[in-house]
Write a protein that binds this DNA or RNA. Structure first.
Lengths: 226, 226
DNA sequence: CACTGGTGTAACAAGTCTGTAACCTTGCTC
DNA sequence: GAGCAAGGTTACAGACTTGTTACACCAGTG
């Protein structure tokens, strides 16, 4: 049975998470502070850690980087829970090495799906944070959040990066605007689907010649293809 | 057509919801109590349930957990309507297995978007994404929306693509024009059946040699056959 | 407090699709 | 073969989609 460690100071939420994880067949361990979380992680070596970004005493980011400093815990995937979407940009800037994040309030079903996805992935493939995706001349380095086109680094905003990564992860598949809004912008984002168009334009511009790789599929959405 | 069950005791709100849902093209069923809601859910097996947390007689949470106890209704997504944004409500709702929640008063637009989001996720997405259909020299790749004839890619408009896909999915069976209009064009489309003819012509042209594979069955409709 | 970079929305311009109607062709019945 | 009905084809105006630009707003920063 897979072990999942929860590091979350809101007791209600922590218990709710534990309840749902156990219902899904995982073993749940709960801790309320960053220090406890670290100790438990070292002792129990869980398969996944759910880590609140805002913790009393020690920030989730610190916990995360401490985990990354020890060989024993380095490989454990971390899923960050954050209160607001903007916080995550800072985290991303810190190049912390969380494998995924989810913004509160989130749907329990979505969280469970992501957990399942991460655990499935951690079995076989190298971790998300160390992955590198290549599509034609575009290279996305997931660890450093760096994107190069034909060897030249380009600057992307966080939304642009997420959009590109999402399209690249779904290599060649057509993604509907609604789906992009849901998965790139977030589950609870309410907005115009034209927002996607605007960002695609911006992304294409920044990608230069490689911008052509983002294809419009009229009536359906967009895809990234070589 | 997707069915949405509303369980809400405030008649005005229930009717407002029903009205808006129908405007969006869903079929709305309305019940006013938890018990009725449960019965209707079991009988009608809706695609989504909008559930008020505060109901006379039986709380929304009870309804929700009852739904989760039966195999038939377990998979139906539930969207909770709550009067206040208290954490407790959210926790309780999630614990019982609600998929999302929205706090009153909410904007109708946001609700509709969330509903669409939930239905999209639960329904069609995984179905078509990886499939490839081959009919003679025609290959339809559902993921990338790419169609090739004898290895050569051809450009189809969205209606043409949907029409071809539909015929291919009903391999060899004769499809009446009315049925095509309903399933390819959409349930609420009212139009001339000759519209189908026009598109079949266009499709045949684009398919080139393989255009012959779309056979006319005089007096009935069309079929796609090798 | 001004400034800046990032976003989402609105608005407009192209350009593409598409339903309809009109006219032509084919196949069937007698 | 005539007459007729069903299907094929074509042209076109209007509807719809998408690309692009501009702009207002927000948060962070100096």
């Amino acid at each position: 049975m897979k072990k999942v460690l929860i590091v979350e100071d809101e007791r209600d939420l922590a218990e709710l998470l534990a309840y749902n994880l156990e219902k899904e067949g995982y073993q749940a361990l709960v801790t309320g502070t960053g220090l406890e979380g670290l100790e438990t992680a070292r002792r129990e070596l869980p398969d996944l850690i759910l880590l609140d970004l805002m913790l009393p005493g020690m920030m989730g980011t610190e916990v995360c980087s401490s985990l990354r400093h020890s060989d024993k815990t380095r490989g454990i995937p971390v899923l960050m829970l954050t209160a607001r979407g903007d916080e995550i940009d800072r985290v991303v800037g810190f190049e912390m090495g969380a494998d995924d994040y989810i913004v509160k309030p989130f749907s329990m079903r979505e969280l469970m799906l992501r957990i399942r996805a991460i655990l499935r992935r951690s079995g076989q493939e190298p971790l998300n944070s160390e992955r590198q995706i290549t599509m034609g001349t575009i290279v996305i380095d997931c660890g450093s959040h760096r994107v190069t086109v034909a060897g030249v680094e380009i600057e992307l905003t966080s939304t642009e990066y997420k959009l590109l990564l999402y399209l690249a992860e779904h290599n060649g598949r057509v993604m509907k605007r609604e789906l992009l809004l849901q998965d790139v912008w977030g589950y609870n984002f309410v907005g115009d689907t034209r927002t996607v168009d605007t960002h695609v334009t911006r992304l294409r511009n920044k990608l230069g010649d490689a911008g052509d790789m983002i294809k419009t599929v009229r009536g359906f959405g967009y895809k990234l293809e070589e």
